[in-house]
Amino acid sequence: MDPLTRIRAICLALPESSERLSHGCPNFFVRSKTAFTMYMEDHHREPGATIWCPAPEGVQAELVDAEPERFFVPPYVGHRGWIGVRLEVDPDWAEITEIIHDAYRKVAPKRLAAQLD
């Protein structure tokens, strides 16, 4: 299965999530308003497929420091704690699912985020 198909399945399974193009790339939103996952291919000097997601405080630095070949600070949103994930470097789909769920929890209204627990 290609990475976008897997990412789409993970994201669209979340409550009140939707997909639309933003800046020419598939983006996933809560209630069509707030982005929680951006999917990119060959963008911003990153070869291959990547996702960008908001992360809980401190997680970005922890992941980038531990595995810089898999994780990076994305341009434009990295200063707000977002994490970039290279999907072409040995993807652990359980971990990627958790990263997306954490991103959703970070931006979703409390009532929707609670549905994941």
Results as ranks from 00 to 15, higher is better:
81 G>A: 03
22 S>G: 02
10 I>N: 03
53 C>A: 14
104 Y>A: 05
10 I>K: 10
1 M>A: 09
32 S>Q: 13
104 Y>W: 10
70 R>A: 13
113 A>N: 09
37 T>F: 08
106 K>S: 12
99 I>T: 12
108 A>Y: 02
5 T>E: 15
93 W>K: 12
115 Q>Y: 07
92 D>S: 09
71 F>M: 03
11 C>L: 02
19 E>W: 02
25 C>M: 14
10 I>Y: 10
29 F>A: 07
45 R>P: 00
116 L>P: 10
99 I>S: 07
59 V>E: 15
87 L>N: 01
67 E>F: 08
77 V>F: 06
46 E>H: 12
78 G>P: 04
1 M>K: 06
98 E>L: 15
65 D>L: 15
66 A>N: 13
55 A>V: 03
53 C>Y: 02
27 N>I: 09
57 E>K: 12
25 C>K: 12
106 K>E: 06
32 S>C: 07
9 A>E: 14
114 A>R: 02
28 F>V: 05
13 A>V: 08
59 V>I: 15
18 S>K: 04
17 S>F: 00
103 A>M: 01
36 F>C: 02
39 Y>A: 04
76 Y>Q: 05
19 E>R: 01
50 T>F: 02
49 A>T: 07
54 P>T: 08
96 I>P: 01
49 A>Y: 02
93 W>D: 10
5 T>N: 11
71 F>S: 11
61 A>T: 07
83 I>E: 09
104 Y>V: 04
44 H>L: 12
9 A>Q: 13
106 K>F: 00
38 M>G: 00
55 A>C: 04
82 W>A: 06
45 R>G: 09
106 K>T: 03
4 L>S: 02
25 C>Y: 13
73 V>A: 14
107 V>R: 09
103 A>P: 05
11 C>R: 00
37 T>N: 08
1 M>Y: 07
65 D>P: 07
8 R>Y: 06
54 P>S: 10
